[in-house]
Amino acid sequence: MKSLTSHRRQLEARVRKEFEHAMDPEFLRTLERLFLVSKQVLSGRFRAERRTRKRGSGVEFADHREYVPGDDVRAVDWNLYGRLEKLFVRMYEEEEDLPVYVLFDVSHSMLEGSPPKAIHAFRIGAAIAYIALASMDRATLMPFAGKIDAYMPPARGKSRIFRLFQSVRTARVGGQTTLQETAKSLVYRRPQRGHVVIISDFFDPDGFEEALRIFRYGRHHVVAVQVLDKRELNPFMAGDVELVEVESGRRISVTATASLIERYRQELKRYTKSLESYCRQHAIPYFLTVSGDDLDMLILDFMRKGGVFT
């Protein structure tokens, strides 16, 4: 391994080059194919059928509440007034389309892998965003490491995808993963609540729980997609090695024995299990994908279980 800086530069350049190719007709054809496949799976369940829990001016009755000055008198339930001699107004469920915020991790840890995990994450994110846009949903695609620098508001229409790609191309790549910062930078902006799809390795020393809690606090419907690399699952190392942390540059010498590798596998398994179990407890759809895996299966699975397009 060369010096850490040159190693990082090399990886960044590679990821950027891949982002450049995002607008290639070949990749767009792939996205279109994925959209057609998803359409078959979710036939008849698009926009008009998606409802929010927001009380508003729709036609579907939801609840009553006491009248307060300023309320629309047209909403007063006079029948109820006749029986109880108190003023109550009728509340209806408001129908609206929920935007899809696709966030994919481009921190230094995501630049590792073969192919780099960031590229795999981008492909997943691009596919989800494209399907949403093609379904006339509002969607956005944003890279992140720490806080989100370049916020792209969700927009509608297939053609919007090029602008999203353009923003990805100019985005900063690298940095340290801080999921909390990411969550805060999105939620504190008070965007319209919607679906937040986080694509990351979730290797955050501060943990993932607080970040997911913040998203949920912002009343977003969160979907977690964890991207790992083959070498992270099965490290290929033996003998005396020096481990270099790609984000902080910290180092430690170890003797990679079979037992050590096994202990690492157990620890990683425990970590991913904890993420999965947290998501299950909080009704967050969770997906695990390995960098380089076929996108088709993941997207179909995502369509069925993700809850984004249902």
């Binding site: 391994m1 230094h108 690399d229 005396d240 090695v241 481990l243 270099v244 790609v246 170890v254």
Partner: peptide
């Protein structure tokens, strides 16, 4: 004895393992 450098992404995981050694 110059050891081979291996980039790792899950530092906190390695730290947990190596703490015992």
């Amino acid at each position: 004895i110059r050891e081979r450098r291996i980039p790792v992404t899950q530092w906190f995981l390695w730290e947990r393992i190596l703490r015992a050694g």
